[in-house]
């Protein structure tokens, strides 16, 4: 069973109102899930129809002339070549490429998984996580919203099984413990509004570090 993003979130994405972190998560889901892509295209058509029906604001003909004059210095760009992932980065969908900087490396994090932080403006913490098969994330619960998109492999938690392209919305206050499926390591983009709260035996000691973004 596949896990699509909620339609309201696709609407906010198509309308351009999402914050940078959630927008990146939805863009990766859209890149990987043909049904989501078709829905976003329909929502784009909706935006186009709304704009077309909105009527015209007064516009000065002189502005057209000045715009035409500016075009002298602006070339029509040729169509960009289709996206080809770099070797070793086959799991990277096109919208993620520009967020990966040269020299970025996986960093081992307490709890047996690896992380690459992605720097984006806004309030969210955006990370790529990599888990070896059978490994889990520490038991945690969500304080704010959390969005997850699977980019490679898969994982299973109490809410189901998630594969490439699947989208998970943080389920609120309940606890859950995702475990990576057998096969390739699971790689996922995680966008967290507020730091998560660890609920395992060491959680009490680690939470202050989580809050400060140390781990």
């Amino acid at each position: 069973m596949s896990h699509p993003a909620p339609e309201e979130l696709l609407l906010d994405y198509a309308a351009g109102t999402l914050a940078p972190g959630p927008a990146l998560a939805v863009s990766l889901h859209v890149a990987l899930d043909p049904a989501a892509r078709r829905m976003v295209e329909k929502l784009g058509a909706l935006g186009g129809a709304l704009m077309e029906g909105e009527g015209e604001a007064p516009f000065d003909e002189a502005l057209l002339q000045s715009t035409l004059a500016r075009l002298d210095g602006i070339a029509v760009e040729s169509r960009p070549p289709p996206y080809v992932p770099r070797p070793g980065f086959e799991w990277v969908p096109e919208p993620l490429v520009r967020h990966l900087e040269d020299g970025m490396r996986w960093k081992r994090v307490f709890g047996g998984f690896e992380e690459m932080r992605i720097s984006l403006p806004g309030e969210h913490r955006v990370s790529l996580l990599r888990l070896e098969p059978g490994r889990g994330l520490p038991m945690h619960r969500h304080v704010g919203e959390e969005f997850t998109v699977v980019l490679q492999g898969g994982y299973t938690d109490s809410t189901g099984n998630y594969g490439v392209g699947d989208f998970a919305v943080g389920p609120g206050p309940e606890q859950h413990e995702p475990i990576a499926d057998p096969g390739e390591p699971c790689i996922a983009l995680i966008v967290i509004e507020k730091p998560i709260v660890l609920t395992g035996p060491f959680g009490r000691f680690l939470n202050p570090l989580v809050r400060r973004g140390v781990i």
Binding site: A15, G16, E41, G44, A45, G47, G48, A49, L50, M51, E52, L63, T67, R70, L71, I74, A75, V76, E77, S78, R79, P80
Partner: peptide, 30 residues
């Protein structure tokens, strides 16, 4: 004005099979 200049620059990337012009210009304006 900026949006229409973008239409000029990116015209070769427009694909009438994938989106109508209104849709495409809407996304640029957004």
């Amino acid at each position: 004005q900026e949006a229409l200049i973008m239409v000029w620059r990116k015209a070769a990337s427009f694909d009438r099979g994938r989106a109508s012009v209104a849709t495409w210009i809407y996304t640029i304006a957004r």
